[in-house]
Amino acid sequence: MAPKSHKKLLTQLLLGTAAMFGFGFALVPLYDVFCDITGINGKVDLTPAKYSSTETSNREVKIQFIAVNNESMPWSFKPTQASLRVKLGKTYQTAYWAKNLTANYMVAQAVPSVAPSEAAQYLQKVDCFCFNRQPLNAGEQREMGLAFNVLAGMPEHIKTITLSYTLFDITATSAKDVASNN
């Protein structure tokens, strides 16, 4: 019996292995798409809303604002308003306040998250300080603006939306970029 060619099968299996290695990495963007659709995790886009809804409604919901400092992020960081009652479809402005309490220049990145997670896709940020890195000099303080609206199509059972911002210290990683900008 002539042995069947191992080469062809071997090539196919090796290609399969390589493809699955690639698939592992492809899961990263796939997951983002999946999150966009399902709002898993309350993950929110870090780019401005591409369209703002013109449809308004008289329904009101409560929006709560929360500030979280990630580990070793020593800034003082809080919302200027703890909560707002908002009409669906209307754009609102609010702000967070931050102060760099250290004696060093620091750069922060705020990461938004929404609870309940299914509300994430209805909360549209028109403008947000989380779109950019936030540098503060030693002792400097600043109000950082946020403009948003809640889409009218949001399911009836959602009465309260909590928007949280976690502040991360990214001084170390952004040092390079700053140097090249100056």
């Binding site: 399969g16 292995t17 390589a18 699955m20 290695f21 690639g22 698939f23 592992g24 990495f25 899961l27």
Partner: peptide, 14 residues
């Protein structure tokens, strides 16, 4: 094994 071990390799690479 062929379908998932490369994914493990991927995740530790990340």
């Amino acid at each position: 094994l062929i379908l998932v071990m490369p994914v493990l390799a991927g995740v530790v690479t990340m």
